[in-house]
Write a protein that binds this DNA or RNA. Structure first.
Lengths: 208, 208
DNA sequence: ACGATATTGTTGCAAATGCAACAGAAATAT
DNA sequence: ATATTTCTGTTGCATTTGCAACAATATCGT
């Protein structure tokens, strides 16, 4: 879902200047590493350059639950996640990640409406963070596994501009993302194949 | 969930000045009315002053589904909702509403880091819009009705600062919000009462 | 190239949830 | 003050979904 990129509409020079202005540093996080833990004290924001990262909630038993996944261009951090003691949140690297790291407060620091690219950046931040969540809610609000899957696939399809999709995350994590049991989801995918609603093999799915 | 207010940390004078700067007009919408329809052309933003409003998605059969509810201070509009043809979105007035209406683009117009209150406003907009959604996702990602309810109640309790809560929306809409069948939710509430996890009568619920 | 690890795919069974339908209470409108 | 609409509360039953457990592939790391 990559139209939700923080740098949309910025050219290379503007992007570079902006990165300097918000004082962002590119860092590498290896697969499996915890990138941020989102506590009330944390003030870090990240923009994913390359790789795949998850926002997970962690319950009292240490079980993790995928709340969101981030593709290149997506922005994440304590700024966008609830500062609460109901659940613990963290960002983890599902694959090796290149991430631009900077402080929350720098998103809206030294703004001046003359800096058109900074204004654009703030707009991107607002829209990308909230719209991505709202899509997720729309998916989760569907009452059956089939509808959840089809809603997810529709959004992905619209975003990729094709009806043949390669999932950005493993099926096992997709089940987590749409909040259903993996085996039940697999069963539903099989049924949808039988009913010629989709054709799929592994992570490659065509909507018919 | 009213710490997610667009005007947090602003005093009356700053608020008034800001309202002028973003050129916001207060409007009244009667109960049941459609406030905005969120199409790709719409560019309106609203801040709820008084009342109760819902973000609904509308499917092909015209059935509406509550994706979010807004309490005084909350901000909503096309800026925060996906611009997509997968589903249709609209904001509707559940009760009579007073709403500050202004254009998307004015949120980040004429910014200057000297205007501390405007910076604060933008920060509020970012955090309130994205955190409210993320809480909703956290609720929906719970796998049972009981856990969904308890997660919802925990957030509400934390926000209200009390363990005895009056729901801001009817139980029938709460079922929609946590995306479960209403009768199944009622059954679960009864069980939780029997097991002394909560005591409740109608919209008044105490967490034990 | 090989072993280790992660992911996909499948099933039987139990349990939770949704659906439909209705009665009663509460709130709202006139 | 009363009628109308909305909301709460309940039940039986069908269905979906989750859980547990396992085999078969695919992918990754060295």
């Amino acid at each position: 879902m990559n139209k939700y990129s923080a740098f949309n509409g910025l050219n290379t020079a503007e992007k570079a200047e902006l990165i300097e202005q918000i004082n962002a540093k590119e860092k590498l996080y290896e697969k499996g590493r915890r990138i941020f833990t989102l506590t009330s004290e944390s003030d870090e924001t990240g923009i994913l350059i390359q790789g795949l990262a998850y926002l997970v909630s962690i319950n009292n038993y240490g079980e993790e639950n995928i709340l969101e996944y981030y593709s290149p261009g997506n922005i994440f951090g304590s700024y966008f996640s609830p500062d609460t003691n109901v659940n613990l949140y963290a960002i983890t690297a599902k694959k090796d990640c290149n991430i631009l790291v900077f402080k929350n407060t720098n998103i809206v620091s030294n703004v001046n409406s003359v800096n058109k690219y900074h204004i654009k950046f703030i707009n991107n931040v607002i829209t990308s963070a909230s719209r991505k969540s709202q899509i997720h809610i729309d998916i989760l609000s569907q009452r059956t596994i089939r509808k959840k899957l089809l809603t997810y696939l529709s959004y992905l399809s619209e975003n990729e501009g094709t009806r043949t999709l390669t999932l950005p995350i493993p099926l096992s994590d997709l089940a987590d993302y749409i909040c259903v049991d993996r085996s039940a989801m697999m069963r539903e995918i099989r049924k949808m194949n039988n009913e010629s609603i989709i054709t799929s093999k592994g992570k490659v799915i065509s909507i018919l």
